[in-house]
């Protein structure tokens, strides 16, 4: 299908975009890369009266590092994250996850901010934000807010953004000392939305995990941190403990059922991912150390 008619405005500054958002509120949609918005409009799931194109806003693009924080502009495209040496070094989990986001032609247009604002529960990048304990910086005409990723995602396509705010950037802390990451997803084909997936980040203290954030996606209405991961922190992890924690993790879940997978299949896949992730991370095989 084709998108219904809408008015179009190309913003030339963030302030200009915010002014339009403020004027039109719920009737407006921001167009960044368009790789989620345009399909939804073509399918007539979303019918905005006005589309505000923020594609020209260079001030929202780019990757910068300062004071142990990687700051990524909201309009930074997936392909730019994938090809960035800075991302590969500082937040390799994100570089790994991007490979699983759709296909090359989509990654050439899709943006980080667009993916987060869309908040598809099966998307990889929102889960990465939670695993990496990101701060999402949003702005309206009157104020700037800094929202922790765990508070940002609030349900299927629902976020903490108000209709008058846009995402400016994302801030990711660079892990100091020894850390490791894990990413895996089960999908019918490469590039498809996952049936279940996990993005995880761990820090080490000697021979134990001192912090473990395992963010699962496609198994709930939003990306979720596994509470059972706490069982593996600051203890000597044994195979039996991993099994026990994976079992407990399955009990935390109430996965959705759709034509792709039953709730039971999703719970099973989530447990398998939990186990593989834990085994990999406690193996210390993938640890990198930043002094």
């Amino acid at each position: 299908m084709k998108a219904p008619a809408f008015a179009y405005s190309r913003a030339t500054s963030v302030n200009g975009a915010l002014e339009l958002l403020s004027a039109h509120g719920e009737n407006a949609r921001l167009l960044s890369g368009g790789q989620s918005l345009l399909p939804a409009m073509n399918l007539r799931l979303i019918c905005p009266e006005i589309v505000i194109d923020i594609g020209d806003l260079a001030e929202l693009r780019g990757i910068a590092v300062r004071d142990g924080i990687v700051s990524i502009g909201a309009m930074t495209r997936h392909v730019e994250l994938l090809e960035s040496a800075q991302i590969a070094t500082s937040v390799p989990l994100l570089a790994e996850a991007i490979r699983h986001v759709a296909h090359p032609a989509i990654r050439n247009r899709g943006t980080l901010g667009g993916s987060l604002a869309h908040a598809d529960p099966a998307a990889e990048l929102p889960a990465c934000m939670i695993a990496l304990d990101a701060t999402i910086v949003v702005r309206s005409q009157s104020a700037e807010r800094r929202i922790a990723a765990v508070d940002f995602f609030q349900g299927i396509f629902a976020t903490a953004l108000s209709a008058k705010e846009l995402i400016v950037s994302v801030e990711l802390p660079i892990a100091q000392g020894a850390s490791a990451y894990f990413f895996h997803e089960f999908a019918r084909r490469h590039g498809d939305y996952a049936l279940a997936g996990v993005a995880a980040h761990a820090t080490m203290d000697g021979q134990v995990l001192s912090e473990l954030r395992m963010a699962f996606f496609a198994i709930a209405d939003r990306p979720v941190l596994a509470k059972a991961a706490a069982k593996l922190v600051n203890v000597t992890v044994t195979p039996a403990l991993i099994s026990e924690a994976a079992e407990a993790f399955g009990e935390e879940l109430d996965p959705p059922e759709d034509q792709q997978a039953s709730a039971d299949l999703r719970r099973h896949l989530a447990r398998v991912l939990f186990r593989r992730c834990a085994e990999e991370l406690v193996d210390f095989g993938s640890v990198r150390v930043i002094q």
Binding site: Q35, L38, D53, R109
Partner: peptide
């Protein structure tokens, strides 16, 4: 609908002509 835009492949159905 894959085409090249500024040297990169894109989905022409997910790009508005105005973009």
């Amino acid at each position: 609908c894959t085409v090249r835009m500024n040297g990169e492949i894109v989905r022409a159905c997910l790009v508005l002509a105005v973009q």
